[in-house]
Design a protein around this nucleic acid. Sequence first.
DNA 1: AAATCGGGGTG
DNA 2: CACCCAGATTT
Length: 373
Amino acid sequence: MSLFFRLLMIFVDIESVEIRPLIRYNFGMDEIKEFQEALLNWYRKSGRVLPWRSDPSPYKVWISEIMLQQTRVDTVIPYFNRFISEIPTIKDLAETDDEKLYKLWQGLGYYRRASHLKKAAQIMVDQYNGRLPENFNDLLTLPGIGAYTAGAILSIAFNISIPAVDGNVFRIIARINAETGDIQKASVKKRLEACVKELIPSTDAGDFNQALMDLGANICIPNGIPKCEECPVKNFCKAYSEGLAYTLPVKGNKAVRKTQEITVLKILRDNRLALRKREEKGLLSNLWELPNYQSFLTEEQCIKILQNNGFKVTSIMPMERVKHAFSHMDWIMIGYLITVEGNEDLSSWTWVTREEILNVYSIPSAFLPFLSV
DNA sequence: AAATCGGGGTG
DNA sequence: CACCCAGATTT
Protein backbone atom coordinates (compact mmCIF):
# COMPACT_ATOMS: atom_id res chain seq x y z
CA MET A 1 0.00 0.00 0.00
CA SER A 2 1.30 3.38 -0.96
CA LEU A 3 2.36 5.97 1.54
CA PHE A 4 -0.27 8.27 0.12
CA PHE A 5 -3.03 5.86 0.99
CA ARG A 6 -1.79 5.30 4.51
CA LEU A 7 -1.62 9.03 5.11
CA LEU A 8 -5.09 9.40 3.64
CA MET A 9 -6.45 6.75 6.01
CA ILE A 10 -4.87 8.43 8.99
CA PHE A 11 -6.35 11.73 7.85
CA VAL A 12 -9.81 10.23 7.42
CA ASP A 13 -9.52 8.58 10.80
CA ILE A 14 -8.63 11.82 12.55
CA GLU A 15 -11.49 13.55 10.77
CA SER A 16 -13.95 10.91 11.86
CA VAL A 17 -12.79 11.16 15.45
CA GLU A 18 -12.97 14.94 15.51
CA ILE A 19 -16.07 15.60 13.48
CA ARG A 20 -18.09 12.52 14.34
CA PRO A 21 -18.24 11.82 18.09
CA LEU A 22 -20.47 8.84 19.01
CA ILE A 23 -23.17 9.31 16.46
CA ARG A 24 -25.39 7.10 14.46
CA TYR A 25 -25.19 8.67 11.02
CA ASN A 26 -25.05 5.32 9.29
CA PHE A 27 -28.30 4.07 7.87
CA GLY A 28 -28.76 0.97 5.76
CA MET A 29 -30.90 1.19 2.64
CA ASP A 30 -33.70 -0.90 4.15
CA GLU A 31 -33.64 1.17 7.28
CA ILE A 32 -34.00 4.41 5.32
CA LYS A 33 -37.01 2.97 3.52
CA GLU A 34 -38.61 1.98 6.83
CA PHE A 35 -37.92 5.42 8.28
CA GLN A 36 -39.54 7.16 5.32
CA GLU A 37 -42.64 4.98 5.42
CA ALA A 38 -43.09 5.31 9.17
CA LEU A 39 -42.81 9.08 8.97
CA LEU A 40 -45.06 9.47 5.91
CA ASN A 41 -47.75 7.16 7.31
CA TRP A 42 -47.78 9.15 10.53
CA TYR A 43 -47.98 12.43 8.58
CA ARG A 44 -50.94 11.26 6.49
CA LYS A 45 -52.77 10.26 9.63
CA SER A 46 -51.70 12.95 12.10
CA GLY A 47 -50.37 15.84 10.03
CA ARG A 48 -51.79 19.31 10.66
CA VAL A 49 -54.50 20.83 8.47
CA LEU A 50 -53.20 24.26 7.43
CA PRO A 51 -54.47 26.95 5.03
CA TRP A 52 -51.45 26.70 2.71
CA ARG A 53 -51.71 22.93 2.50
CA SER A 54 -55.17 22.65 0.96
CA ASP A 55 -53.94 24.28 -2.26
CA PRO A 56 -50.14 24.22 -2.32
CA SER A 57 -49.68 26.57 -5.27
CA PRO A 58 -46.17 27.98 -5.64
CA TYR A 59 -47.40 31.46 -4.67
CA LYS A 60 -49.14 30.30 -1.50
CA VAL A 61 -46.25 28.06 -0.51
CA TRP A 62 -43.83 30.94 -1.02
CA ILE A 63 -45.88 33.44 1.00
CA SER A 64 -46.44 30.94 3.80
CA GLU A 65 -42.76 29.99 3.96
CA ILE A 66 -41.64 33.62 4.20
CA MET A 67 -44.19 34.33 6.93
CA LEU A 68 -43.18 31.20 8.80
CA GLN A 69 -39.53 32.21 9.06
CA GLN A 70 -38.85 32.31 12.81
CA THR A 71 -42.59 32.65 13.35
CA ARG A 72 -45.11 30.21 14.82
CA VAL A 73 -47.79 28.56 12.75
CA ASP A 74 -50.61 29.84 14.97
CA THR A 75 -49.35 33.39 14.57
CA VAL A 76 -49.05 33.13 10.81
CA ILE A 77 -52.49 31.66 9.97
CA PRO A 78 -54.59 34.87 10.20
CA TYR A 79 -51.87 36.93 8.50
CA PHE A 80 -51.64 34.38 5.67
CA ASN A 81 -55.40 34.30 5.05
CA ARG A 82 -55.67 38.08 5.01
CA PHE A 83 -52.63 38.45 2.76
CA ILE A 84 -53.81 35.92 0.15
CA SER A 85 -57.25 37.47 0.17
CA GLU A 86 -55.91 41.01 -0.33
CA ILE A 87 -53.03 40.12 -2.66
CA PRO A 88 -53.99 36.93 -4.51
CA THR A 89 -51.30 36.77 -7.21
CA ILE A 90 -47.64 37.48 -7.87
CA LYS A 91 -48.59 40.30 -10.23
CA ASP A 92 -50.81 41.89 -7.57
CA LEU A 93 -47.95 41.67 -5.10
CA ALA A 94 -45.52 43.31 -7.52
CA GLU A 95 -47.91 46.25 -7.83
CA THR A 96 -49.02 46.51 -4.20
CA ASP A 97 -48.71 49.87 -2.51
CA ASP A 98 -46.03 49.85 0.20
CA GLU A 99 -48.29 51.24 2.93
CA LYS A 100 -50.83 48.50 2.29
CA LEU A 101 -48.12 45.85 2.26
CA TYR A 102 -46.67 47.00 5.59
CA LYS A 103 -50.12 47.31 7.13
CA LEU A 104 -50.82 43.67 6.23
CA TRP A 105 -47.55 42.80 7.96
CA GLN A 106 -48.14 44.88 11.10
CA GLY A 107 -47.32 42.89 14.23
CA LEU A 108 -45.78 39.94 12.38
CA GLY A 109 -42.21 41.16 12.86
CA TYR A 110 -39.06 40.96 10.74
CA TYR A 111 -40.51 43.59 8.44
CA ARG A 112 -37.76 43.23 5.83
CA ARG A 113 -39.62 40.11 4.78
CA ALA A 114 -42.48 42.22 3.44
CA SER A 115 -40.28 44.43 1.28
CA HIS A 116 -38.31 41.38 0.11
CA LEU A 117 -41.58 39.77 -1.00
CA LYS A 118 -42.51 42.71 -3.17
CA LYS A 119 -39.04 43.02 -4.69
CA ALA A 120 -38.97 39.30 -5.44
CA ALA A 121 -42.43 39.50 -7.02
CA GLN A 122 -41.24 42.31 -9.28
CA ILE A 123 -38.26 40.21 -10.35
CA MET A 124 -40.59 37.29 -11.09
CA VAL A 125 -42.75 39.54 -13.27
CA ASP A 126 -39.74 41.02 -15.06
CA GLN A 127 -37.59 37.93 -15.50
CA TYR A 128 -39.61 34.76 -14.87
CA ASN A 129 -42.86 35.32 -16.75
CA GLY A 130 -44.66 36.16 -13.52
CA ARG A 131 -43.91 32.83 -11.88
CA LEU A 132 -41.59 31.38 -9.29
CA PRO A 133 -38.45 29.87 -10.81
CA GLU A 134 -38.40 26.09 -10.46
CA ASN A 135 -34.75 25.59 -9.62
CA PHE A 136 -32.64 26.05 -6.54
CA ASN A 137 -30.07 28.53 -7.81
CA ASP A 138 -32.59 30.94 -9.33
CA LEU A 139 -34.70 30.86 -6.17
CA LEU A 140 -31.63 31.64 -4.07
CA THR A 141 -31.00 34.85 -6.01
CA LEU A 142 -34.39 36.24 -4.97
CA PRO A 143 -34.48 38.52 -1.91
CA GLY A 144 -35.67 36.79 1.26
CA ILE A 145 -35.15 33.27 -0.07
CA GLY A 146 -32.32 31.26 1.44
CA ALA A 147 -31.45 27.57 1.38
CA TYR A 148 -34.29 26.48 3.63
CA THR A 149 -37.04 28.42 1.85
CA ALA A 150 -35.82 27.40 -1.60
CA GLY A 151 -35.91 23.76 -0.52
CA ALA A 152 -39.36 24.15 0.99
CA ILE A 153 -40.79 25.77 -2.15
CA LEU A 154 -39.26 23.22 -4.51
CA SER A 155 -40.28 20.20 -2.46
CA ILE A 156 -43.77 21.31 -1.41
CA ALA A 157 -44.94 23.21 -4.49
CA PHE A 158 -43.04 21.36 -7.22
CA ASN A 159 -42.48 17.99 -5.54
CA ILE A 160 -38.76 18.06 -6.21
CA SER A 161 -36.65 15.87 -3.93
CA ILE A 162 -34.60 18.40 -2.00
CA PRO A 163 -34.18 18.96 1.76
CA ALA A 164 -35.71 21.88 3.64
CA VAL A 165 -33.73 22.00 6.85
CA ASP A 166 -35.14 24.39 9.42
CA GLY A 167 -34.84 24.55 13.19
CA ASN A 168 -37.22 21.62 13.62
CA VAL A 169 -35.23 19.40 11.30
CA PHE A 170 -31.90 20.31 12.88
CA ARG A 171 -33.32 19.36 16.27
CA ILE A 172 -34.89 16.09 15.08
CA ILE A 173 -31.86 14.90 13.13
CA ALA A 174 -29.56 15.87 15.99
CA ARG A 175 -31.62 13.71 18.34
CA ILE A 176 -31.86 10.79 15.93
CA ASN A 177 -28.09 10.73 15.70
CA ALA A 178 -27.45 11.68 19.33
CA GLU A 179 -25.41 14.56 17.96
CA THR A 180 -23.61 16.19 20.88
CA GLY A 181 -21.98 18.99 18.91
CA ASP A 182 -23.35 22.55 19.06
CA ILE A 183 -26.01 22.76 16.32
CA GLN A 184 -25.27 26.47 15.93
CA LYS A 185 -21.88 25.58 14.46
CA ALA A 186 -21.56 25.38 10.70
CA SER A 187 -19.64 22.11 10.80
CA VAL A 188 -22.40 20.38 12.77
CA LYS A 189 -25.13 21.83 10.57
CA LYS A 190 -23.33 20.54 7.51
CA ARG A 191 -23.26 17.05 8.98
CA LEU A 192 -26.96 17.16 9.84
CA GLU A 193 -27.90 18.46 6.39
CA ALA A 194 -25.96 15.63 4.79
CA CYS A 195 -27.94 13.19 6.90
CA VAL A 196 -31.26 14.64 5.69
CA LYS A 197 -30.03 14.23 2.13
CA GLU A 198 -29.60 10.53 2.80
CA LEU A 199 -33.00 10.16 4.39
CA ILE A 200 -35.17 12.14 1.96
CA PRO A 201 -37.19 10.01 -0.48
CA SER A 202 -37.02 10.52 -4.25
CA THR A 203 -40.81 10.89 -4.32
CA ASP A 204 -43.07 12.58 -1.73
CA ALA A 205 -40.28 14.96 -0.72
CA GLY A 206 -42.77 17.72 0.06
CA ASP A 207 -44.74 15.48 2.40
CA PHE A 208 -41.54 14.17 3.92
CA ASN A 209 -40.25 17.65 4.69
CA GLN A 210 -43.58 18.78 6.10
CA ALA A 211 -43.81 15.59 8.13
CA LEU A 212 -40.54 16.52 9.81
CA MET A 213 -41.93 20.00 10.60
CA ASP A 214 -45.07 18.51 12.15
CA LEU A 215 -43.01 16.01 14.07
CA GLY A 216 -40.94 18.89 15.42
CA ALA A 217 -44.04 20.91 16.32
CA ASN A 218 -46.03 18.17 18.06
CA ILE A 219 -43.75 15.27 19.07
CA CYS A 220 -40.06 16.13 18.95
CA ILE A 221 -40.75 19.51 20.56
CA PRO A 222 -38.14 22.21 21.26
CA ASN A 223 -38.97 23.16 24.84
CA GLY A 224 -40.40 20.82 27.38
CA ILE A 225 -40.18 17.06 27.34
CA PRO A 226 -40.40 15.48 23.87
CA LYS A 227 -43.24 12.98 23.47
CA CYS A 228 -41.02 10.10 22.45
CA GLU A 229 -43.58 7.38 23.17
CA GLU A 230 -45.85 8.84 20.49
CA CYS A 231 -43.03 9.24 17.98
CA PRO A 232 -43.39 7.24 14.74
CA VAL A 233 -39.61 7.05 14.30
CA LYS A 234 -38.48 6.49 17.88
CA ASN A 235 -36.97 3.14 16.92
CA PHE A 236 -34.53 4.98 14.65
CA CYS A 237 -33.56 7.51 17.30
CA LYS A 238 -30.30 7.18 19.17
CA ALA A 239 -31.17 9.95 21.63
CA TYR A 240 -34.33 8.02 22.52
CA SER A 241 -32.52 4.74 23.08
CA GLU A 242 -29.93 6.47 25.23
CA GLY A 243 -32.31 8.69 27.16
CA LEU A 244 -30.84 11.88 25.70
CA ALA A 245 -33.87 13.25 23.85
CA TYR A 246 -34.59 15.90 26.48
CA THR A 247 -30.93 16.93 26.74
CA LEU A 248 -30.28 17.29 23.02
CA PRO A 249 -29.65 19.21 20.91
CA VAL A 250 -26.79 21.26 22.34
CA LYS A 251 -27.01 24.97 21.60
CA GLY A 252 -24.36 27.38 22.80
CA ASN A 253 -24.06 31.11 22.18
CA LYS A 254 -25.97 33.10 24.74
CA ALA A 255 -25.97 36.61 23.35
CA VAL A 256 -25.82 39.57 25.69
CA ARG A 257 -28.98 41.66 25.65
CA LYS A 258 -28.80 45.43 25.80
CA THR A 259 -31.35 47.80 27.24
CA GLN A 260 -32.32 51.19 25.82
CA GLU A 261 -34.23 53.86 27.71
CA ILE A 262 -36.61 55.85 25.52
CA THR A 263 -39.11 58.66 25.96
CA VAL A 264 -42.23 58.37 23.80
CA LEU A 265 -44.44 61.36 23.03
CA LYS A 266 -48.14 60.93 22.32
CA ILE A 267 -48.88 64.35 20.87
CA LEU A 268 -52.40 65.44 19.95
CA ARG A 269 -53.40 68.50 17.94
CA ASP A 270 -57.02 69.01 16.94
CA ASN A 271 -57.78 65.36 17.64
CA ARG A 272 -54.96 64.20 15.40
CA LEU A 273 -51.94 62.25 16.51
CA ALA A 274 -48.33 62.95 15.49
CA LEU A 275 -46.64 60.03 13.72
CA ARG A 276 -43.16 59.87 12.29
CA LYS A 277 -41.85 57.52 9.59
CA ARG A 278 -38.80 55.47 10.51
CA GLU A 279 -35.64 55.15 8.44
CA GLU A 280 -35.45 52.84 5.44
CA LYS A 281 -32.79 50.74 7.12
CA GLY A 282 -32.36 49.19 10.52
CA LEU A 283 -34.81 48.29 13.24
CA LEU A 284 -38.51 48.53 12.29
CA SER A 285 -37.55 50.20 9.02
CA ASN A 286 -40.25 52.00 7.06
CA LEU A 287 -42.82 51.67 9.84
CA TRP A 288 -44.56 54.56 11.62
CA GLU A 289 -43.84 55.49 15.22
CA LEU A 290 -44.73 57.94 17.93
CA PRO A 291 -42.00 60.60 18.12
CA ASN A 292 -39.46 59.35 20.65
CA TYR A 293 -36.06 60.28 22.07
CA GLN A 294 -33.13 58.51 23.69
CA SER A 295 -33.02 58.38 27.51
CA PHE A 296 -35.71 59.42 29.97
CA LEU A 297 -36.71 63.06 29.51
CA THR A 298 -38.46 65.25 32.06
CA GLU A 299 -41.72 67.11 31.34
CA GLU A 300 -39.71 70.34 31.05
CA GLN A 301 -37.35 68.84 28.47
CA CYS A 302 -40.30 67.61 26.37
CA ILE A 303 -42.01 70.99 26.53
CA LYS A 304 -38.78 72.66 25.40
CA ILE A 305 -38.47 70.30 22.40
CA LEU A 306 -42.00 71.15 21.27
CA GLN A 307 -41.55 74.88 21.85
CA ASN A 308 -38.33 74.84 19.83
CA ASN A 309 -40.37 73.43 16.96
CA GLY A 310 -43.04 76.11 17.12
CA PHE A 311 -45.75 74.45 19.18
CA LYS A 312 -47.50 75.71 22.29
CA VAL A 313 -48.00 72.94 24.83
CA THR A 314 -51.47 73.17 26.38
CA SER A 315 -51.20 70.06 28.59
CA ILE A 316 -48.72 67.32 29.46
CA MET A 317 -49.27 64.17 31.51
CA PRO A 318 -46.94 61.26 32.25
CA MET A 319 -48.08 57.84 31.02
CA GLU A 320 -47.43 54.37 32.39
CA ARG A 321 -43.95 52.92 31.89
CA VAL A 322 -43.76 50.15 29.27
CA LYS A 323 -41.18 47.44 28.58
CA HIS A 324 -40.81 45.92 25.16
CA ALA A 325 -38.57 42.98 24.35
CA PHE A 326 -37.01 42.54 20.93
CA SER A 327 -34.98 39.44 20.16
CA HIS A 328 -31.66 41.20 20.70
CA MET A 329 -32.51 44.12 23.01
CA ASP A 330 -35.05 45.63 25.38
CA TRP A 331 -36.71 49.00 25.32
CA ILE A 332 -37.82 50.63 28.53
CA MET A 333 -40.20 53.40 27.56
CA ILE A 334 -41.71 56.25 29.52
CA GLY A 335 -44.39 58.31 27.81
CA TYR A 336 -46.10 61.68 27.95
CA LEU A 337 -49.57 62.48 26.71
CA ILE A 338 -49.30 65.98 25.28
CA THR A 339 -51.73 68.36 23.63
CA VAL A 340 -50.40 71.22 21.52
CA GLU A 341 -51.51 74.18 19.48
CA GLY A 342 -49.64 75.82 16.66
CA ASN A 343 -49.44 75.77 12.93
CA GLU A 344 -45.77 75.00 12.43
CA ASP A 345 -45.53 71.50 11.02
CA LEU A 346 -42.43 69.47 11.53
CA SER A 347 -41.75 68.12 8.06
CA SER A 348 -41.03 64.67 9.41
CA TRP A 349 -44.31 64.45 11.35
CA THR A 350 -47.68 63.43 10.00
CA TRP A 351 -50.92 64.23 11.81
CA VAL A 352 -53.30 61.30 11.59
CA THR A 353 -56.83 60.39 12.68
CA ARG A 354 -57.84 57.40 14.79
CA GLU A 355 -59.35 55.87 11.66
CA GLU A 356 -56.05 56.16 9.79
CA ILE A 357 -54.14 54.63 12.68
CA LEU A 358 -56.35 51.56 12.45
CA ASN A 359 -56.52 51.23 8.67
CA VAL A 360 -53.51 52.87 7.04
CA TYR A 361 -50.36 53.28 9.10
CA SER A 362 -48.26 50.28 10.08
CA ILE A 363 -47.16 50.80 13.68
CA PRO A 364 -44.82 48.42 15.54
CA SER A 365 -46.20 46.56 18.55
CA ALA A 366 -43.79 48.40 20.86
CA PHE A 367 -45.85 51.60 20.53
CA LEU A 368 -49.32 50.09 20.75
CA PRO A 369 -49.59 50.26 24.57
CA PHE A 370 -49.42 54.06 24.26
CA LEU A 371 -52.21 54.15 21.69
CA SER A 372 -54.85 52.14 23.52
CA VAL A 373 -55.06 54.67 26.36
C1' DA B 1 -18.59 33.55 13.00
C1' DA B 2 -21.38 36.84 14.99
C1' DA B 3 -24.81 40.43 14.93
C1' DT B 4 -29.09 42.14 13.25
C1' DC B 5 -33.88 41.85 12.67
C1' DG B 6 -40.06 41.17 15.96
C1' DG B 7 -43.11 39.34 18.44
C1' DG B 8 -45.34 35.97 21.12
C1' DG B 9 -45.77 31.31 23.33
C1' DT B 10 -43.85 28.38 26.73
C1' DG B 11 -41.69 26.07 30.84
C1' DC C 1 -37.07 35.48 32.94
C1' DA C 2 -34.68 32.65 29.10
C1' DC C 3 -35.44 30.07 25.27
C1' DC C 4 -37.43 29.11 20.88
C1' DC C 5 -39.83 29.56 16.55
C1' DA C 6 -41.10 26.47 8.73
C1' DG C 7 -34.23 32.01 8.67
C1' DA C 8 -32.07 35.55 5.76
C1' DT C 9 -28.84 39.09 5.36
C1' DT C 10 -25.22 42.03 6.75
C1' DT C 11 -20.97 42.88 9.11
